[in-house]
Computed example of a mutant assay.
Amino acid sequence: MGVEAVTTDVPPKLSTIEASKRLAAWTAVDRHVKEEHKVIGIGSGSTVPYVVERIVAQGREANKDRVFIPTGFQSKELIVKGNLLLGDVDQYPRIDVTLDGADEVDKDLNAIKGGGACHLREKVLAEAADTFIVVADYRKNSEVLGTTYTAGIPIEVAPFAYAKVLQNLHAIGSPNAALRMAQKKAGPVVSDNGNFIIDAPFPEEDMKDPYTLLTKLKMLTGVVEVGLFCHMAKAAYFGNQDGSVTVRWLDGRVEHVSKRASPLVPPEDSTDDEPSPMPDGPLEHSIGNSKGAPAVNGNGDKA
């Protein structure tokens, strides 16, 4: 039986930023969570509730045979509250598609993640997925990492080793690296894995080559995982203030999904007050890059 048609109730009034997050999430789900996808990774962060919301809207029939793998406590709660089947990466080491947020994404789809201290589990689910998709609002779309997310690279470390890791970070170019301290409680932030988090800002020169920096940081004894996600995402969806979506693809294409094609916007000639369901046909879009990019269809694949 096919996937039920997605219908949309009148959405609550959101701030511009929240509306942008929802727009990115809904568009990504409509394109990448298909009938054949049975094992789905659910990431963490402020955009992810809209991802789950849109998946739930696909209907019980579409979701009855699916298993959802969380990256942490937040995503686990979203899955349970959405009456979706909860699974574990131990049971499903291969995932069809994982959707997750990001703190910042550069022009090559490298990302900073870990502002919520879940980047170890997020990276496991991203690597396990056949397709890894990032969803975010327009503020996260950068040319170079560290431009808008200035707190530094999140680094999960074994508690026993944190002081030595900090010393090493200071020596290799991050003099302001510091242990992340908890809010409203004394002491450091502790990850779901029982580890500490260090935030390590690096100069733009290093951030222009995040893969080399990632390799250097992973070699430090005591480091469990680094919040640099390099060469992993297939696409990143950014909701914009004007109701459009910018999609960056791994091959360098930049796609612009117009407001007219948004899943949140009814047709201009509609007399109804309620948003209409997603159209059955391909989304309207234009694509541009310096090399003359090929057309893509509504699934984001090359035509």
Score class of each variant (00 low, 15 high):
residue 80 V to P: 04
residue 86 L to W: 10
residue 86 L to V: 14
residue 89 V to K: 08
residue 90 D to F: 15
residue 92 Y to C: 07
residue 92 Y to E: 04
residue 93 P to G: 06
residue 98 T to E: 13
residue 101 G to C: 11
residue 102 A to S: 14
residue 102 A to Y: 09
residue 106 D to N: 14
residue 107 K to G: 02
residue 107 K to F: 12
residue 107 K to D: 12
residue 107 K to V: 11
residue 109 L to T: 08
residue 111 A to L: 15
residue 112 I to G: 07
residue 115 G to R: 11
residue 117 A to S: 13
residue 118 C to M: 10
residue 121 R to K: 15
residue 122 E to K: 14
residue 122 E to T: 03
residue 124 V to E: 00
residue 126 A to H: 03
residue 127 E to I: 02
residue 128 A to C: 05
residue 133 I to F: 13
residue 134 V to R: 04
residue 134 V to M: 15
residue 138 Y to T: 06
residue 138 Y to S: 14
residue 145 L to P: 03
residue 146 G to Q: 10
residue 146 G to M: 14
residue 147 T to M: 13
residue 148 T to P: 02
residue 149 Y to L: 12
residue 153 I to R: 00
residue 154 P to Q: 12
residue 155 I to V: 11
residue 158 A to M: 14
residue 160 F to V: 06
residue 167 Q to V: 01
residue 168 N to G: 01
residue 169 L to E: 00
residue 169 L to T: 00
residue 169 L to F: 05
residue 170 H to K: 13
residue 171 A to R: 03
residue 176 N to I: 01
residue 177 A to I: 08
residue 182 A to D: 13
residue 184 K to T: 05
residue 184 K to G: 03
residue 186 A to Q: 11
residue 187 G to W: 09
residue 187 G to K: 06
residue 188 P to Q: 11
residue 190 V to N: 04
residue 193 N to F: 02
residue 196 F to L: 09
residue 198 I to E: 02
residue 199 D to Q: 10
residue 200 A to W: 00
residue 200 A to D: 00
residue 203 P to Q: 08
